[in-house]
Structures are given as structure tokens and as C-alpha cells.
Amino acid sequence: MTTAIDVAGVVKTFGTVRALDGLDLRVSTGEVHGFLGPNGAGKSTTIRVLLGLLRADSGTVRLLGGDPWDDAVALHRRLAYVPGDVNLWPNLTGGEAIDLLGRLRGGLDEKRRQDLLERFDLDPTKKGRTYSKGNRQKVALVAALASDVELLILDEPTSGLDPLMEAVFTECIDEWKDDGKTVLLSSHILAEVEKLCDRVSIIRAGTIVESGTLAELRHLTRTSIHAETARAVTGLDQLPGIHDLVVEDHRVTFDVDTAQLDGAVKHVTGFGLQSLTSQPPTLEELFLRHYGDELAAEGVTTEAGAVS
């Protein structure tokens, strides 16, 4: 498998602010890669570096086998970009903006353009300044999805879209994936990433703190177990990797590190298992685990906060 995006040790500073602090990011060709992080973590900065709009202070960046700064024009023919905050020209219609961006990229697929306009229910005759935020977003999405490129770079593309349009977007990305094309999807909407992405990287304060397939990441976190047993469970607190244990008569609830799941379940079984529900860790928990301490510092308590 080849690599579409390969970023290693990238540092980018703005004055005294270190926006990217040794960032590593790898996206393989043909995968949909979720790029997760809260506001201000460095997602957009990373994307701007990938697009050659910003120049990295140090580190290496390879995009589709080229250098995004030096080979910007050639590379941009092969990718499409949707910014998180779409600003359109006030006196150009949406249709004109779509055509313009498509032509500047090297051409649009006419059929797909028409198809996308219908699916996204977008009126291309309205002037840029009369569009709502969601409709501006649609203009950028149609322009990007109607072009014949290998790589999509999407910076929080569904912000402002209603749930119906989000569903259309999900469909489009699925089709895109079926064609074997690559997507980098920056988002803070975990459900979206969970639904669409093969692999995920979590960025925090300009560094990637976690990266892998969803399965791999789940392995790093905890599963919630709720069990009813014939006899009251004892000795569970002696096992490694058990958290938030609550024993209530014949019911037991706890979180267990995924690596210790086997031992914990075996132990519980010994007390006459009557019912068992287990909840796999959600991306949300993963996310909160990495940012939980920040939230805790601000006085917000979370269940998956891992403030132990």
C-alpha cells in the first residue's frame, strides 16, 4: 500500500505560538482517514501545510509523492479541498464559483456536477452573499466532489449541514471510498468519523497522540461491563486493569482495560453469570480520554475522563 500523505516531525510556529509541535501523520492511499481534535489543536494548520498555503518550519511533508510547497500546482491538480469556513465571492453565483474552482483545478465531471447539485439540493443561481453557511459549504463540497481527483482534503466539511445533507455527504464519501480514492477528513464530530473512517489520528496541541484503525484504538481503551451473577462478585478489585468498580448485591459494573478483558470476564463467570452486557469503547471515550484532563482542569467531569 502506498502512502498518500506522509508527515514527519513537522513544526510550525506563529510568533511564540507553537501550532504544530513535531506532528507525524500517515495516510495510506485508498483509505478514509479521520483527523480528530478539538478547536485550536492544529487540524487546519496541518491541512494548510499539506496544501502548501503555509510553510513548515521543520520536518518533512510528502503529499501524493511530492512536496506540497514546491510542487503545489502539480499536486493540486490531483486533489480537492473543502475549507471549514467557506467564503464565497459575494457577486458570483454558486454555480459560477463551482465552475471556476473546478476549471482552475483542471476540469469538472459535468454529469457528477449536475447529480451533486440535485442530491445536495443546491440552487446554483444565487449570489454568494445570499447563501447560508450550510449552502456555502455545499458549494465547496459540490466543487470538490465533482472534480476528478485522487485525494480529498476536507476540513470539518459538514459544519452547517443539516442531518439530511450530512447523510448525503456520508453517501458521497462512501462512493468515493469505493472508487479507491483517498480522503483526509478533519472533524470533531465523532459519530461522523466513526461511521466513515478506516483509520483515525487524534491531534492534541499540535502533536498526534493516537493513531490507528478504530479496532486498534479500541484496544487501547476500556470496555464497560455490566453483569448479574448468582453470587456477589468478590476479588475483582485485585485484578489489574479494573476501573470504576461498583458491586451492588448481585450486580457488578466496571470498566476494564481492553487488554485485561479476558481475565476479568473469566473471573466474573466464576460467580455464576446470569446476564452480561458489554459496551465497546466509543470514539468519544477515546477522545475524552485524551482531553479528559483538560476538561477536568476546567472543572468538567466526564465518565470516561480517566481522572484516576
Binding site: L92, T93, G95, E96, A97, I98, D99, L100, R103, L104, D123, P124, T125, K126, K127, R129, T130
Partner: peptide, 16 residues
């Protein structure tokens, strides 16, 4: 009031 415009870009709107 702004009027609706063209749904397609003219040929000249193809370059910077």
C-alpha cells in the same frame, strides 16, 4: 434586491 444569476460560469471565468 439581488437577482438570481447564471447557474454556469462564462467561458472567461476559467482563469485567475
Amino acid at each position: 434586491q439581488p437577482r438570481p444569476g447564471s447557474p454556469r460560469a462564462g467561458a472567461r471565468l476559467s482563469t485567475p
